[in-house]
């Protein structure tokens, strides 16, 4: 983030608490290790050698929802999986975000039928949608960076209202 450039010769930086909290949140986001279908393979590829998501502070995939603050819904969500997905979301500690990865998670994709939720936004609130079937790893990384932009704009006031 280039803090070094802003450091004067006193070694001190002034900023608001909000900025600092948001900055630290964006640089240590722990996604949940949670793959549903084909998109999960591309999510794995995004963490593997060629794309390497850990460049953005996301190398730590957590298997437990209680330790993670980002849920990447990678794949189609069936009617049987819906309640489970919601329970996992409820188990994550606040503040938490959701990325809907792929067409299926965003809108049902090619599977417009009885078995699949037409978008996981029917089950959990979604912050960022990533298009593509499957999205390229670059697209996922772009989605994560878009989420960072969103998180950087968060204010304490919003949180105060939300969690009153």
């Amino acid at each position: 983030m280039g803090v070094e450039q802003k450091l004067g010769n006193m070694g001190v930086v002034t900023t608001t608490l909000e900025n600092m909290v948001n900055w630290s949140r964006t640089n240590a986001m722990w996604p949940m290790l949670f793959g549903l279908a084909c998109c999960a393979i591309e999510m794995m590829a995004a963490q593997a050698s060629d794309y390497d998501m850990s460049r953005f502070g996301m190398e730590l995939m957590r298997a437990s929802p209680r330790q993670s603050d980002l849920m990447i819904v990678a794949g189609r969500c069936s009617k049987k999986m819906g309640p489970v997905l919601r329970r996992l979301y409820d188990q994550m500690p606040e503040p938490k975000w959701v990325i809907a990865m792929g067409d299926c998670a965003s809108c049902g994709g090619v599977f417009n039928n009885y078995a699949i939720f037409q978008g996981v936004d029917e089950v959990v609130p979604v912050d960022v949608y990533v298009a593509g079937c499957p999205p390229r790893p670059e697209a996922l990384i772009h989605g994560v960076l878009t989420l960072y932009e969103k998180v950087k704009g968060d204010t304490f006031k919003e949180y105060a209202v939300k969690y009153k």
């Binding site: 417009n112 039928n113 009885y114 078995a115 037409q118």
Partner: peptide, 14 residues
């Protein structure tokens, strides 16, 4: 039983 022919596909209008 979903694969019966009289069970609707469950198509949702775009």
């Amino acid at each position: 039983h979903p694969l019966r022919k009289d069970y609707p596909l469950g198509y949702e209008e775009p």
